[in-house]
Amino acid sequence: MIEVKNISKSFDGKTILHSVSAQFKDGLTNLIIGQSGSGKTVLMKSLVGLHTPDQGEILYDGRDLLKMNNSQKKELRKEIGMLFQGSALFDSETVLGNVMFPLKMFSDMSYEEQLERAHFCIKRVNLVGADDKYPSEISGGMQKRVAIARAIALNPKYLFCDEPNSGLDPKTSILIDELLVDITHEYGITTVINTHDMNSVLGIGENIVFLNKGHLAWTGNKDQVYDSDNETLNDFVFANDLFKKVKKYVNLTNDK
């Protein structure tokens, strides 16, 4: 489990995160949601150590990231996989090269074992046959899947995904969401997903952390979203007519 306690972060005197505390649970898809500028990305980058919070604690199964020395951080990072918004695949490497990269850098496996593991991960994300293609030769959805395969190559305990659905069509978004849920449950990973895609929120949000203007505004799961009387959350999640109708329908069904 990842726990953040009273995290605050400012840039040039402007406070982005105001004493945020939250828990991200094992084996669940944990979502960080909120409007643009609400501090989602800053929170996620703080969680993975790309930003250093001004105060607070970030506990990875009790280990405080902010009190770790460099070698401890390096060890922890081997347990972390991350999927970036733009996939962040290495342009100079093929699909296979990208997936094998963490294995080459951090595992003691032989070349054959690395190859076997990489092929397993590529198969797991349904990309068989794309081994020799370069990132520029595949679609955005395929790039995301390669990034997921690379992120899970070292069997991470924690998986972070920054806007995994951005730039994808609805069908591919759902495929990516399903893949993330399956992987999370299959390997018992603590998955933290940063999103403002409402399909994801209502589809895969097993633990949701809602940020509003840098403050923690609500926590719960996808089912509790429908019952919530938090106005800011309702305004955000059910902003469009379709979702308003969905909420009405779900509430009616629940009442019956």
Partner: peptide, 9 residues
């Protein structure tokens, strides 16, 4: 891509 490298350690 550089952030990805850093996160991998």
């Amino acid at each position: 891509q550089i952030d990805a490298l850093e996160i991998m350690g």
